[in-house]
Design a protein around this nucleic acid. Structure first.
Length: 884
RNA sequence: GGGCAGUUAGCUCAGCUGGUAGAGCACCGCCUUCACACGGCGGGGGCCACAGGUUCAAGUCCUGUACUGCCCACCA
């Protein structure tokens, strides 16, 4: 881009693509190794390979990118590792559905090998999708280190960890009642089950007692499981039933005698206080069954169909059986009552099928020892931001149950366990064993199951850095600096990374965890395809540009609070991008024609407007460091927004227009200061708005006249203490107030903006007069004056509009057809305002306790303000009197 | 049932260690002023959910109440 032909409106599309390509081709974000400076690293939360980028990713990626680009500016050796996740069930479902739709085949028709080949093929074809979307966001990841949870290195890490845990005694195989998805045909972890409320019925049935002495009534929402009942439980201290404990009841329909047992799990208040026990189909019943050594009778198979043990109902889907069993009870006259009832039901988080508790043999990871380590490491070694999540984190780890890690699907890391076909020995090894270590035979059969997707994700912070090899990356970048993630996967992922990182690296996986909000729609609802309120980041990028999207998300990313996003907001911040663009155009138009700036020491520049903006720049630099350093992203974005729009553009650019026209030294000084401020501001803004800043940066003259550098490699601007000039800043704001006073008078009295007014400023003292005088051309230009008198002894004309600003009296003589009534009203309004504040302050100062106990400087400040207000009020009253 | 947030201008939200409130959008008026109408200038608008308490002083700290949202939990 050359500086002559910057177009008037900013057009993101072409410019962004150019920079994406530039950064990727130049490997700009591949860190130099071995690292010559402190390291800073982040691993990307790997998006699903099947996935599309949603707005939550966009937020997540933007915040990480800000941190990485900022760390680079601070001279750190930065690595941001990109990658994606194989997403076991999700991906398998996608490919299965496609297979069914295109060829009418199931995965079983193909067989394991052929099906997996299809999944890989699918992944090659569509896996790049998510990568392209990450690239669109402008993420400064190192593409040369892109990883996939199923690639060879990571797969090896998975096997090594699994075998390692086994050898440490932390992995075991056992029968357990698990959450079973009858559609995905696999076990699910507790976390993978969504609970939703449902309206159903609560049936109460009578079970006759074996000795014919009556019946006992139980309540259930699942009559079909009655066929698997093995006991009835009551509370041990429940007088109603104590005499029945030890007796037997007859399970109707199947006419099986079942014992009545006592267990304090039973809630006496609920229903009849007697509960049927079906260990095969309910978690609690399973636990009670274990305790009381009850038989397990499974009546529903792994597809959700009643099996042979269900007697007359065999072959029916469970929901049909439910109705039929209830009807049968009614026919037998054993239905006590039916009520409407609401409870919650578990759904598969992938396919939304109802979860069926199901007994099967699964692999488990013992969580207790791992969880204890993860608890101990927080917050001393890993800090959470915001720390309101601490309790949640601890609570989950305190109550965590063993992790069921086996899944009965095909796509994923196959469990590295082998059973000997000869002696039945179980071998768990990192690499496939050649022969049984017990009997030496070679008939080894590998376990059919694969591991939970989250198992490989749990290793992500070290597996992506090359573990188990002792790579330079691992040494340099582990532990990572920060993990940026949404709270929705705090348990799924963060806690498990903590556990396995500590177990295998002896070190936490990250020093900080920044937990960001959820992005919701404008009405606070979760975005979902079914509601149709999804904001697609790619569509937004196309419409408004990536910088606008990123800035919007950042500006609303207040810690610990959800973001309500609407398209109008993104559009709003697009205006800001355009504003920056146009301010930059102005700057470029005003740079010296040859691009050679006369060097200047910013600390010694004359002119309070320059001193003021340089002073503010220093403050903004410090604020930026503080905001990003403490993860206050909204402060970071909004601080820059305010500085750029209201200070740099609305004031400073206007202030220097007279300098630019004046030529000579005034012009060269203005050029240099503008150039300095704009350049440094661009660097501050770059982490959140990489594209527009890169483009403008490249167009600006360079200090040495050489071709422009890449702003992505530019260090954070060093502090310039010599530019901190609070006094100049205060003087400047006095001048601004004088200008605003004239403008207010003009607007409120409906004086045409084009009319060159006469104004008289009566400064409060000689010092003020001197400052105002030095800014005469600026005041005349910005207040649009034809004539300006600055005089401490000035006498106001009889009829004049009047305003007091910073102790200076601003007088606009009213001539011609000016609305005197409007001026009177304006003065009254002004007076009311003054007197209100005065009353408040005087009340405060009348309080002896305040005078005695408040810090003296505050009392002083209030007294000074009272004097100022009194003075202003007096002046206004005098003017007001003339109108009366 | 337990836990955690939130309740500030019409809307969406800032307000960190206490000194009687800010932004963006929306709204009203004026303006095609030579970077920008994706703009400029000016303006209106809030007893900071409610009730107590601590304090010279509370949106800001403490207690309680009421709603809203989220997370966790085995009540059949």
């Amino acid at each position: 881009m050359s500086q002559e032909n910057l177009p008037k409106g900013y057009d993101p599309a072409a410019i962004e693509q150019q920079w994406r390509d530039h950064w990727e081709q130049n490997k700009t974000f591949t860190p130099e190794m071995p690292a010559k400076s402190a390291s800073y690293s982040i691993v990307i939360p790997p998006p699903n390979v099947t996935g599309n980028l949603h707005i939550g990713h966009a937020l997540n990626l933007t915040l990480q990118d800000i941190l990485c680009r900022h760390a680079r500016q601070q001279g750190k050796t930065v690595l941001w590792v990109p990658g994606y996740d194989h997403a076991g069930i999700a991906t398998q479902n996608v490919v299965e559905r496609r297979l069914a739709a295109d060829e009418g085949k199931s995965r079983d028709d193909l067989g394991r090998e052929a099906f997996l080949e299809r999944v890989w093929r699918w992944k090659e074809e569509y896996g790049g999708n998510i990568t392209r979307q990450v690239k669109a966001m402008g993420c400064s990841v190192d593409w040369t280190r892109e990883r996939f949870t199923m690639d060879e290195g990571l797969s090896r890490a998975v096997r090594k960890v699994f075998a390692g845990l086994y050898k440490q005694g932390l992995v075991y195989k056992g029968d357990y009642i698990v959450n079973w998805c009858t559609r995905c045909h696999t076990a699910l972890a507790d976390d993978e089950v969504d609970h939703v409320p449902q309206k159903t019925k609560l049936w109460s049935f009578n079970y006759p007692l074996e000795d014919g002495s009556g019946h006992i009534t139980i309540a259930t929402v699942r009559p079909e499981t009655i066929l698997g009942d093995v006991a009835i439980a009551v509370h041990p201290e429940d007088e109603r039933y104590q005499h029945l404990v030890g007796k037997k009841a007859i399970l109707p329909i199947l006419r099986r005698p079942i014992p009545i047992i006592a267990d304090n799990y039973v809630d006496r208040e609920f229903g009849t206080g007697a509960v049927k026990i079906t260990p095969a189909h309910d978690l609690n019943d399973w636990l009670i069954g274990e305790k009381h050594k009850l038989e397990v009778v499974q009546v529903i198979d792994d597809a959700g169909i009643m099996n042979a043990k269900a007697g007359p109902f065999a072959g029916l889907p469970k929901l049909e059986a439910r109705e039929k069993v209830a009807a049968e009870f009614e026919k037998l006259g054993l239905l006590a009552k039916v009520e409407d009832y609401e409870n919650s039901i578990g759904l598969c988080y992938r396919c939304k099928e109802i979860i069926e508790p199901h007994i099967s043999t699964q692999w488990f990871v013992s969580m207790r020892p791992l969880a204890d380590k993860a608890i101990a490491a927080v917050p001393s070694r890993t800090q959470l931001f915001p720390d309101t999540w601490l309790k949640t984190y601890y609570h989950w780890l305190d109550t965590v149950r063993d992790w069921c890690v086996s899944r009965q699907i095909w796509w994923g890391h196959r469990i590295p366990a082998w059973t000997c076909g000869n002696c039945g020995a179980l071998l768990v090894e990192e690499e496939a064993p050649q022969q049984c270590d017990q009997c030496g035979c070679a008939e080894l059969q590998q376990d059919q199951d694969v591991l939970d997707t989250w198992f490989s994700s749990a290793l992500w912070p070290f597996s992506t850095l090359g573990w188990p090899e002792e790579t330079q990356d691992l040494k340099t970048f582990y532990p990572t600096s920060v993990l940026v993630t949404g709270f929705d996967i705090l348990f799924f992922w963060v806690a498990r990374m903590m556990m396995l990182g500590l177990q295998f690296m002896d070190e936490v996986p990250f020093r900080h965890v920044y937990i960001h909000a959820l992005v919701r729609d404008a009405d606070g609802r979760k975005m979902s395809k079914s509601i149709g309120n999804v904001i697609d980041p790619l569509e937004m990028i196309g419409k408004y540009g990536t910088d606008a999207l990123r800035f919007t998300l950042t500006a609303f990313a207040a810690m610990g609070r959800d973001i309500r996003l609407s398209e109008e907001r993104i559009d709003g911040y697009r205006h800001f991008v355009n504003k920056i663009w146009n301010a930059s155009r102005f700057a470029l138009m005003n740079m010296p024609a040859d691009g050679q700036l006369a060097p200047l020491d910013p600390g010694r520049v004359e002119g309070i407007h320059h001193q003021w903006i340089l002073h503010r720049l220093e403050e903004v630099k410090a604020d930026t460091l503080k905001s990003i350093g403490s993860y206050r992203f909204n402060d970071y974005a909004q601080g820059l927004y305010k500085f750029i729009w209201t200070e740099l553009c609305d004031w400073y650019l206007e202030l220097i227009k007279t300098d630019m026209q004046a030529g000579g030294e005034k012009q060269t000084a203005a050029q240099y200061v503008l150039w300095t401020v704009l350049r440094e501001t661009l660097v501050l803004l770059h982490p959140v708005m990489p594209f527009v800043t890169a483009e403008v940066w490249a167009a600006l003259p360079t200090p040495d006249g050489k071709p422009a550098t890449d702003i992505a490699l530019e260090p954070f601007p060093a502090a310039r203490p010599a530019c901190l000039k609070a006094e100049a800043a205060a003087q400047m704001s006095m001048v601004q107030e004088a200008i605003v006073a004239v403008r207010t008078i003009r607007a409120e009295l409906n004086i045409a903006p084009a009319l060159r007014l006469k104004a008289i400023i009566k400064p409060q003292d000689d010092a003020a007069a001197c400052v105002l005088e030095s800014q005469r051309p600026v005041i005349e230009a910005l207040a649009r004056l034809g004539e300006l008198v600055i005089d401490v002894r000035a006498a106001a004309p009889r009829l004049a509009a009047n305003q007091v600003a910073s102790g200076n009296e601003i007088i606009v003589p009213l001539e011609g057809a000016v609305d005197f009534e409007a001026e009177k009203a304006r003065l009254d309004k002004e007076l009311v305002k003054l007197e209100k504040e005065l009353a408040m302050l005087e009340g405060k100062l009348a309080n002896p306790n305040y005078l005695e106990k408040a810090p003296p400087h505050l009392v002083e400040r209030d007294r000074a303000r009272v004097d100022e207000l009194k003075d202003a009020a007096l002046k206004l009253k005098q003017v007001r009197a003339r109108f009366a």
